[in-house]
């Protein structure tokens, strides 16, 4: 059982960073909903507060990990230009998609949307995490602030969802693959 080096990086980008980031965004929405629904007496213990901070920081790191690994590792492989005379476009996903009018839209709409909108998610969630940590003691005074944060967290979830969804669908049409082979398990007969 083998995968290639590029498969591995793509999995780290999409499933480890991107997938866990989206789950964490959803977790933040639950946190916000809970903080808006609690009526007094819902204070966290010191340990609970510390774990919540760790969760928020890890979420932010995952978000930035997703966009940076995507833009600086996976995307250059995706948009590589084949040398003159190459007819097998399997290692050049963008060119492969654009070569067929039935698949060109995966690049012209899907990738062009994904590559930009994805960056909004970590920007917005960094802000939401910072606001949640800064104003955790504000309690009832800042309900409107938390309601606004819900809108931004939803926008981040939308942006990240578009990026993740198109990433998965595009990779099914024209996978980013190649590089050194990595043996995960010896074959059995």
């Amino acid at each position: 059982m083998q995968i290639t080096g590029r498969d591995l990086v793509t999995i780290i980008h999409g499933m480890l960073f991107g997938g866990l980031f989206l789950m964490a965004c959803f977790g933040v929405l639950i946190l916000l909903h809970r903080s808006l629904s609690i009526r007094g007496g819902g204070e966290l213990t010191e340990a609970g507060r510390r774990r919540e901070h760790i969760f928020l920081v890890v979420m932010v790191v995952l978000g930035w990990g997703a966009v940076l690994s995507g833009a600086y590792f996976v995307y250059p492989w995706y948009r590589a230009i084949p040398p003159a005379g190459v007819t097998n476009l399997g290692a050049y996903p963008q060119r492969l998609l654009l070569a067929d009018p039935h698949t060109a839209g995966w690049h012209t709409l899907g990738m062009e949307w994904k590559e930009h909108v994805a960056w909004m998610a970590p920007i917005l969630m960094t802000m939401v995490a910072w606001v949640l940590m800064k104003y955790e003691d504000a309690g009832e005074e800042h309900r409107r602030l938390r309601s606004t944060a819900v809108v931004f967290a939803l926008a981040a979830l939308l942006a990240g969802g578009v990026a993740a969804g198109f990433g998965a669908l595009i990779d099914k049409q024209a996978p980013v693959t190649g590089g050194p082979a990595i043996n995960l398990m010896r074959g059995t007969r």
């Binding site: 960094t126 802000m127 606001v131 800042h142 606004t148 931004f152």
Partner: peptide, 11 residues
């Protein structure tokens, strides 16, 4: 709420 406002507008 000024610090939160600054963070939200800037983002």
């Amino acid at each position: 709420n000024g610090a939160a406002g600054a963070a939200i507008v800037a983002a």
